[in-house]
Protein backbone atom coordinates (compact mmCIF):
# COMPACT_ATOMS: atom_id res chain seq x y z
CA UNK A 1 0.00 0.00 0.00
CA UNK A 2 1.58 3.27 -1.03
CA UNK A 3 1.27 6.36 1.08
CA UNK A 4 -0.02 9.40 -0.71
CA UNK A 5 2.97 11.52 0.20
CA UNK A 6 5.18 9.28 -1.92
CA UNK A 7 2.89 10.07 -4.84
CA UNK A 8 3.88 13.70 -4.91
CA UNK A 9 6.83 13.96 -7.23
CA UNK A 10 8.01 17.38 -6.18
CA UNK A 11 11.53 17.19 -4.77
CA UNK A 12 12.29 20.22 -2.60
CA UNK A 13 15.51 22.05 -3.34
CA UNK A 14 17.20 25.41 -3.79
CA UNK A 15 18.90 24.84 -7.15
CA UNK A 16 18.85 27.47 -9.93
CA UNK A 17 16.22 25.33 -11.70
CA UNK A 18 14.03 25.25 -8.59
CA UNK A 19 14.30 29.00 -8.19
CA UNK A 20 13.53 29.82 -11.81
CA UNK A 21 10.08 31.37 -12.25
CA UNK A 22 7.37 28.76 -12.90
CA UNK A 23 6.05 30.66 -15.91
CA UNK A 24 9.45 30.43 -17.59
CA UNK A 25 9.81 26.74 -16.71
CA UNK A 26 6.34 25.82 -17.91
CA UNK A 27 6.75 27.71 -21.19
CA UNK A 28 10.16 26.19 -21.84
CA UNK A 29 8.93 22.67 -21.04
CA UNK A 30 5.99 23.00 -23.42
CA UNK A 31 8.24 24.47 -26.13
CA UNK A 32 10.77 21.68 -25.62
CA UNK A 33 8.15 18.97 -26.03
CA UNK A 34 6.70 20.72 -29.07
CA UNK A 35 10.16 21.04 -30.63
CA UNK A 36 10.83 17.34 -30.09
CA UNK A 37 7.53 16.46 -31.72
CA UNK A 38 8.42 18.62 -34.73
CA UNK A 39 11.73 16.84 -35.32
CA UNK A 40 11.63 14.34 -38.17
CA UNK A 41 12.51 10.70 -37.51
CA UNK A 42 16.16 9.95 -37.59
CA UNK A 43 17.34 13.50 -36.78
CA UNK A 44 19.71 11.94 -34.30
CA UNK A 45 22.15 14.81 -34.06
CA UNK A 46 19.51 17.34 -33.06
CA UNK A 47 17.75 14.84 -30.79
CA UNK A 48 21.10 14.24 -29.14
CA UNK A 49 21.57 17.99 -28.65
CA UNK A 50 18.11 18.24 -27.14
CA UNK A 51 18.89 15.36 -24.78
CA UNK A 52 22.16 17.00 -23.78
CA UNK A 53 20.38 20.29 -23.04
CA UNK A 54 17.83 18.55 -20.88
CA UNK A 55 20.41 16.53 -18.98
CA UNK A 56 22.46 19.66 -18.26
CA UNK A 57 19.31 21.20 -16.81
CA UNK A 58 18.74 18.06 -14.75
CA UNK A 59 22.30 18.33 -13.41
CA UNK A 60 21.69 21.93 -12.39
CA UNK A 61 18.47 20.97 -10.67
CA UNK A 62 20.28 18.51 -8.37
CA UNK A 63 17.31 16.14 -8.41
CA UNK A 64 19.51 13.37 -9.75
CA UNK A 65 19.72 12.26 -13.36
CA UNK A 66 19.14 8.67 -12.29
CA UNK A 67 15.81 9.49 -10.64
CA UNK A 68 14.60 11.29 -13.74
CA UNK A 69 15.82 8.64 -16.18
CA UNK A 70 14.22 5.83 -14.20
CA UNK A 71 10.94 7.58 -13.60
CA UNK A 72 10.75 8.46 -17.29
CA UNK A 73 10.21 4.81 -18.13
CA UNK A 74 6.64 5.25 -16.94
CA UNK A 75 5.51 5.78 -20.54
CA UNK A 76 7.48 2.86 -21.91
CA UNK A 77 4.65 0.31 -22.05
CA UNK A 78 2.97 2.56 -24.55
CA UNK A 79 5.98 2.21 -26.85
CA UNK A 80 4.84 -1.33 -27.52
CA UNK A 81 1.97 0.10 -29.54
CA UNK A 82 4.58 1.59 -31.85
CA UNK A 83 6.77 -1.50 -32.07
CA UNK A 84 4.80 -2.63 -35.10
CA UNK A 85 6.23 0.26 -37.09
CA UNK A 86 9.41 -1.78 -37.28
CA UNK A 87 7.59 -4.28 -39.45
CA UNK A 88 4.98 -2.18 -41.20
CA UNK A 89 7.04 0.72 -42.60
CA UNK A 90 8.42 -0.21 -46.03
CA UNK A 91 12.23 -0.18 -46.42
CA UNK A 92 15.32 -2.32 -46.65
CA UNK A 93 14.85 -5.59 -44.74
CA UNK A 94 17.10 -5.81 -41.69
CA UNK A 95 16.05 -9.04 -39.98
CA UNK A 96 13.23 -11.54 -39.96
CA UNK A 97 11.28 -12.67 -36.96
CA UNK A 98 9.49 -15.99 -37.26
CA UNK A 99 6.33 -16.00 -35.19
CA UNK A 100 4.30 -19.17 -35.45
CA UNK A 101 2.99 -19.48 -38.98
CA UNK A 102 3.97 -15.89 -39.82
CA UNK A 103 7.31 -14.28 -40.52
CA UNK A 104 7.76 -10.63 -39.73
CA UNK A 105 10.28 -8.60 -41.69
CA UNK A 106 11.87 -5.63 -39.98
CA UNK A 107 12.81 -2.68 -42.21
CA UNK A 108 15.54 -0.11 -41.62
CA UNK A 109 13.11 2.78 -42.05
CA UNK A 110 10.74 1.10 -39.61
CA UNK A 111 13.45 0.70 -37.01
CA UNK A 112 14.40 4.36 -37.33
CA UNK A 113 10.76 5.48 -36.97
CA UNK A 114 10.26 3.28 -33.93
CA UNK A 115 13.48 4.30 -32.22
CA UNK A 116 12.79 7.99 -32.89
CA UNK A 117 9.32 7.81 -31.38
CA UNK A 118 10.53 5.99 -28.28
CA UNK A 119 13.47 8.33 -27.79
CA UNK A 120 11.36 11.47 -28.24
CA UNK A 121 8.73 10.12 -25.91
CA UNK A 122 11.34 9.26 -23.29
CA UNK A 123 12.85 12.76 -23.49
CA UNK A 124 9.41 14.41 -23.34
CA UNK A 125 8.55 12.53 -20.17
CA UNK A 126 11.90 13.55 -18.68
CA UNK A 127 11.21 17.20 -19.45
CA UNK A 128 7.78 16.99 -17.80
CA UNK A 129 9.32 15.15 -14.85
CA UNK A 130 11.95 17.83 -14.41
CA UNK A 131 9.19 20.46 -14.32
CA UNK A 132 7.20 18.49 -11.74
CA UNK A 133 10.24 17.65 -9.64
CA UNK A 134 11.50 21.23 -9.41
CA UNK A 135 8.24 23.19 -9.39
CA UNK A 136 5.72 22.96 -6.59
CA UNK A 137 2.27 22.47 -8.04
CA UNK A 138 1.07 25.72 -6.51
CA UNK A 139 3.68 27.45 -8.65
CA UNK A 140 2.42 25.59 -11.71
CA UNK A 141 -1.07 26.86 -10.87
CA UNK A 142 0.31 30.36 -10.55
CA UNK A 143 1.96 29.99 -13.96
CA UNK A 144 -1.27 28.69 -15.52
CA UNK A 145 -3.15 31.67 -14.09
CA UNK A 146 -0.52 34.03 -15.50
CA UNK A 147 -0.82 32.26 -18.87
CA UNK A 148 -4.53 33.19 -18.86
CA UNK A 149 -6.15 29.87 -18.10
CA UNK A 150 -9.74 30.71 -17.02
CA UNK A 151 -9.93 31.47 -13.29
CA UNK A 152 -12.62 28.84 -12.77
CA UNK A 153 -10.32 26.12 -14.07
CA UNK A 154 -7.39 27.30 -11.98
CA UNK A 155 -9.66 27.32 -8.93
CA UNK A 156 -10.96 23.81 -9.61
CA UNK A 157 -7.40 22.55 -10.16
CA UNK A 158 -6.31 24.18 -6.95
CA UNK A 159 -9.12 22.61 -4.89
CA UNK A 160 -8.57 19.29 -6.63
CA UNK A 161 -4.89 19.35 -5.77
CA UNK A 162 -5.61 20.26 -2.16
CA UNK A 163 -8.08 17.42 -1.68
CA UNK A 164 -6.45 14.87 -3.97
CA UNK A 165 -4.33 13.44 -1.21
CA UNK A 166 -7.13 13.56 1.34
CA UNK A 167 -9.33 11.54 -1.04
CA UNK A 168 -6.58 9.12 -2.01
CA UNK A 169 -6.00 8.44 1.68
CA UNK A 170 -9.70 7.77 2.14
CA UNK A 171 -9.73 5.46 -0.88
CA UNK A 172 -6.73 3.58 0.44
CA UNK A 173 -8.22 3.20 3.89
CA UNK A 174 -11.24 1.60 2.23
CA UNK A 175 -9.07 -0.72 0.15
CA UNK A 176 -7.15 -1.70 3.27
CA UNK A 177 -10.36 -2.41 5.13
CA UNK A 178 -11.51 -4.62 2.26
CA UNK A 179 -8.12 -6.35 2.19
CA UNK A 180 -8.37 -7.16 5.89
CA UNK A 181 -11.70 -8.87 5.43
CA UNK A 182 -10.86 -10.71 2.20
CA UNK A 183 -10.25 -14.09 3.78
CA UNK A 184 -10.31 -17.49 2.17
CA UNK A 185 -11.66 -20.80 3.36
CA UNK A 186 -9.47 -23.71 2.26
CA UNK A 187 -11.23 -25.79 -0.33
CA UNK A 188 -13.93 -23.22 -0.95
CA UNK A 189 -14.26 -20.99 -3.97
CA UNK A 190 -13.47 -17.56 -2.56
CA UNK A 191 -13.67 -14.00 -3.72
CA UNK A 192 -17.20 -14.08 -5.09
CA UNK A 193 -18.21 -13.42 -8.69
CA UNK A 194 -16.80 -10.60 -10.78
CA UNK A 195 -20.16 -8.86 -10.71
CA UNK A 196 -20.22 -9.01 -6.93
CA UNK A 197 -16.64 -7.72 -6.68
CA UNK A 198 -17.45 -4.88 -9.06
CA UNK A 199 -20.48 -4.05 -6.94
CA UNK A 200 -18.33 -3.81 -3.84
CA UNK A 201 -16.01 -1.37 -5.61
CA UNK A 202 -18.99 0.53 -6.96
CA UNK A 203 -20.34 0.94 -3.46
CA UNK A 204 -16.94 2.17 -2.31
CA UNK A 205 -17.02 4.68 -5.15
CA UNK A 206 -20.51 5.71 -4.08
CA UNK A 207 -19.43 6.09 -0.45
CA UNK A 208 -16.46 8.17 -1.51
CA UNK A 209 -18.74 10.32 -3.62
CA UNK A 210 -21.16 11.00 -0.77
CA UNK A 211 -18.30 11.82 1.60
CA UNK A 212 -16.68 14.08 -0.98
CA UNK A 213 -19.94 15.87 -1.56
CA UNK A 214 -20.48 16.44 2.14
CA UNK A 215 -16.92 17.66 2.51
CA UNK A 216 -17.42 20.14 -0.31
CA UNK A 217 -20.40 21.54 1.58
CA UNK A 218 -18.32 22.00 4.75
CA UNK A 219 -15.56 23.66 2.72
CA UNK A 220 -18.11 26.00 1.24
CA UNK A 221 -19.28 26.98 4.72
CA UNK A 222 -15.68 27.55 5.77
CA UNK A 223 -15.21 29.81 2.76
CA UNK A 224 -18.39 31.74 3.48
CA UNK A 225 -17.29 32.21 7.07
CA UNK A 226 -14.18 33.97 5.82
CA UNK A 227 -15.93 36.38 3.53
CA UNK A 228 -16.16 34.44 0.26
CA UNK A 229 -18.69 36.04 -2.07
CA UNK A 230 -18.20 33.97 -5.20
CA UNK A 231 -15.33 35.99 -6.52
CA UNK A 232 -11.91 34.36 -6.44
CA UNK A 233 -9.15 36.70 -5.42
CA UNK A 234 -5.44 36.12 -5.59
CA UNK A 235 -2.35 38.26 -5.39
CA UNK A 236 -1.39 39.67 -8.78
CA UNK A 237 1.51 37.94 -10.50
CA UNK A 238 4.68 40.02 -10.55
CA UNK A 239 6.24 40.79 -13.92
CA UNK A 240 9.21 38.77 -15.14
CA UNK A 241 12.66 40.19 -14.41
CA UNK A 242 14.99 40.98 -17.29
CA UNK A 243 17.06 37.94 -16.44
CA UNK A 244 14.02 35.66 -16.57
CA UNK A 245 12.91 37.20 -19.84
CA UNK A 246 16.41 36.62 -21.18
CA UNK A 247 16.39 32.94 -20.18
CA UNK A 248 12.96 32.48 -21.76
CA UNK A 249 13.96 34.15 -25.04
CA UNK A 250 17.29 32.33 -25.31
CA UNK A 251 15.63 28.99 -24.56
CA UNK A 252 12.84 29.47 -27.09
CA UNK A 253 15.25 30.76 -29.73
CA UNK A 254 17.59 27.78 -29.26
CA UNK A 255 14.73 25.31 -29.64
CA UNK A 256 13.37 27.13 -32.71
CA UNK A 257 16.88 27.18 -34.18
CA UNK A 258 17.35 23.46 -33.66
CA UNK A 259 14.04 22.65 -35.34
CA UNK A 260 14.75 24.98 -38.26
CA UNK A 261 18.21 23.47 -38.65
CA UNK A 262 16.82 19.99 -39.22
CA UNK A 263 14.36 21.20 -41.83
CA UNK A 264 16.91 23.34 -43.69
CA UNK A 265 19.64 20.73 -43.64
Amino acid sequence: MLSSSTLDRYIAGQSPVHLLDARVKLSLTLAYILALALLPSGAWLVMGLCAAMLWVAVRWSQVGLRTILLRAFVALPFALVAVTLVFSVPGQPVFRLPLGPWVLTASDAGLVRFASIVFKSWLSVQAALLLTATTHFTQVLYALRALRLPTVLVAILSFAYRYLFVMIDEAQRMLRARECRSAETPGQHSGGSIVWRARVVGQMVGTLFVRSYERSERIYLAMLARGFTGELRTLNPRSLTQREQGILIIGLATLAGLVLMTYLA
Binding site: A155, A160, I168
Partner: peptide
Protein backbone atom coordinates in the same frame (compact mmCIF):
# COMPACT_ATOMS: atom_id res chain seq x y z
CA UNK B 1 -16.24 25.88 -7.35
CA UNK B 2 -15.28 23.92 -4.21
CA UNK B 3 -17.76 21.22 -5.26
CA UNK B 4 -16.17 20.69 -8.66
CA UNK B 5 -12.67 20.79 -7.22
CA UNK B 6 -13.49 18.16 -4.62
CA UNK B 7 -15.29 16.12 -7.28
CA UNK B 8 -12.15 16.13 -9.43
CA UNK B 9 -10.21 14.83 -6.45
CA UNK B 10 -12.96 12.28 -5.90
CA UNK B 11 -12.79 10.94 -9.48
CA UNK B 12 -9.01 10.78 -9.21
CA UNK B 13 -9.18 8.76 -6.01
CA UNK B 14 -12.08 6.63 -7.26
Amino acid sequence: IPLMGVMAAFIFAA
